[in-house]
Design a protein around this nucleic acid. Sequence first.
DNA 1: TCTGGGGTCCTAGGACCC
DNA 2: TCTGGGGTCCTAGGACCC
Length: 438
Amino acid sequence: MRPVRRPTLAIGSVSVSVSAMDRRILHVDIDAFLASVEQLRDPALFGRPVAVGTGVVASRSYEAKARGVHTAMPLHEALRRCPDLVVREGDSRLAERYRQRVAEVIGRFSPVVEACSLDDFYADLTGVPLRIEQALASTVTVDAERSLGPLCRQLRAAVRAETGLSVAQGLGSTRTVARLATTKAKPGGICEVPAGRELDFLAGFPVEALPGVGPQASGLLHAVGVRTVRELWAVDRELLRRSFGARGDEIWRRCRGLDDAPVLASPALRSISRETSFEPRAEVGSQERPFLRAMLAYLLDRAASELRRLQLCARTVQVRVGHVDGVRAERSRALPAATDRTDEFVAAAGGLLEHLLGRRVLVRLVGVTLASLVAPGPAQGRLFDDGDAARRRLFAAVDAVRARHGFGALVVGGAAGLLGKLPRGPHGFRLRTPSLAK
DNA sequence: TCTGGGGTCCTAGGACCC
DNA sequence: TCTGGGGTCCTAGGACCC
């Protein structure tokens, strides 16, 4: 067994040794995030059942939950259960601004904040009570157990006061314990699992509550009679490894409260994807090559402009196609050099799309991914390419116009093939799930 | 009740190079 | 000249998460 690394925290003249079990990880989850943002935007919606999404429910207010509306439920089913449900498309830009404000508040309480998804965060509060005790201006009282409860209540009040949003918080010695504690704290509560009580806390959860155990793994575990974390403890480590690969080992550690993954400020972005689905029969021309090629160009333009906004380049283009019978296929291609130019991505992706369109089945989804992301280096190998410099200036100009007037202000290249075929707004063509589509 | 979009990570075979 | 081993990249696809 590997020796446990014991990092040392230096606070003023005090030095404390911290073992893995002494860590205090905070998980923060914004309650009913997208639905709450809608209620903040339109206060008439407070107290009413609200759902955000198109096609399926992406987020719902607690009033809607009380009426049987759950996330991932088809909207027609949600409306059947709750006929006065208010359905909104949502606004990803507004949500992003709220998310950043919540992250800022958490950042005042913790030196390290990791934004995990749209609506949740991890923070490492290890050693924070000591620091607070020593900060003369602090109004927080830290009890003998070093409970972080008071700090969490302050955090919750600050988020509420500054954004109007409600958060649930979980505290534990690992990310898994903290995350599961949050599920017990929803909505608006705080659940702290004291050090040493991890196993009691984990024992009763169903196996599928563990991160890393999805439908596939839980199905297999159920089939052999393993339904709870307590029962999972009895499963041999080697057996988990053989059944689920590297993830099996992770599961073995997580169910024992042994995962020691750190909280990282900002994990590097690995890829940028955009995809959309459509009703093959309802949308005119959706099966025709020109439409699909235009959609591909549009999605690549969206992904590439995000790439440029982040000042990154990509070296791999991936295209995927989904059919009405559920069969999906994808192909990828590495470019000769990393780039951020939409036209280079479109040129490479066209051939990939042709490969994927061989089946005589209706297409209901097209998607693209830009991967192998790197920071733009000096333009190696193309120092004498004037065309490249001109293209770059063109895209920079396009980006500038869009930053001012919205993405939909300009339609570029092959995406023009969508004109007149898809509804269009200031932020671009209207795809299926605007609340989440960027 | 299999619906949606945007991500991450892992695996595995084949190509290619040394 | 033949055979082999190891590393790395490319590509395709699966599982999982929110």
